[in-house]
């Protein structure tokens, strides 16, 4: 067995929920190097969330990927979230990072306004981001700038609207017919 990171190896029941706990070493490292890249650090349920301003997300990802001791070389997941049409900022994009050498995880978060739902693409950092970003674009309408191939992925190309937005009705706008 490989050595285990003590941070991630705790049994689940020992995890405590604290909104204002001490920042994790990951967030601390990021803040030490580039304080302007983190606007907020949230520690909850044993998971670290770092809110990153939109313009720094690619730099922050590239830094986390290569920085010694962090080595987040694996993008587990990327997903969007819509807080609802009344909320401002409306959209969140979550990046779940994992390290295949250190075995720790972190979540980066970017918040976006509705009228300017653009975020730089991280496909240059991890190629796996390609489909995740296409999916988020398809379902939320978040535009990933500099994405090599930003098309709809799940829904047909002529689909109207973005299905996972809160104001999209569950049953769609009109019933289906072949004609």
């Amino acid at each position: 067995m490989e050595p285990q990171n003590p941070q991630t190896n705790q049994p689940e029941n020992e995890l405590t929920s604290s909104e204002t706990g001490t920042p994790s070493p990951i967030a601390a490292a990021l803040q030490r190097e580039h304080p302007e890249w983190t606007s907020e650090v949230i520690e909850a349920l044993g998971e670290t969330t770092i809110v990153v301003p939109r313009e720094h997300i690619v730099d922050a990802c590239a830094f986390l990927k290569t920085a010694p001791g962090l080595e987040f070389n694996f993008l587990s997941d990327l997903c969007g979230f819509d807080r609802g049409p009344e909320e401002e900022p409306r959209f969140e994009v979550n990046y779940h990072l994992f390290s295949t050498t250190k075995f720790h995880r972190v979540r980066l978060k970017v918040v976006l306004n509705e009228d300017d739902a653009h975020v730089p693409s991280v496909t240059g950092v991890w190629r796996t981001a390609n489909w995740h970003e296409r999916e988020t674009y398809d379902l939320f309408g978040v535009i990933f700038d500099n994405h090599p191939d930003l098309r709809r992925i799940l829904l047909p190309d002529d689909w109207q609207g973005h299905a996972l937005r809160k104001d999209f009705p569950l049953r769609g706008y009109e019933p289906y017919s072949l004609e």
Partner: peptide, 29 residues
Amino acid sequence: PGEVYHPIEASKGELGVYVKSTGGPKPAR
């Protein structure tokens, strides 16, 4: 309220579930 990302090893690889709650009986995402 809160958000979690929980990964498990499914038969095909890492299956991660991201659940976000804003309170109430239904998940927000």
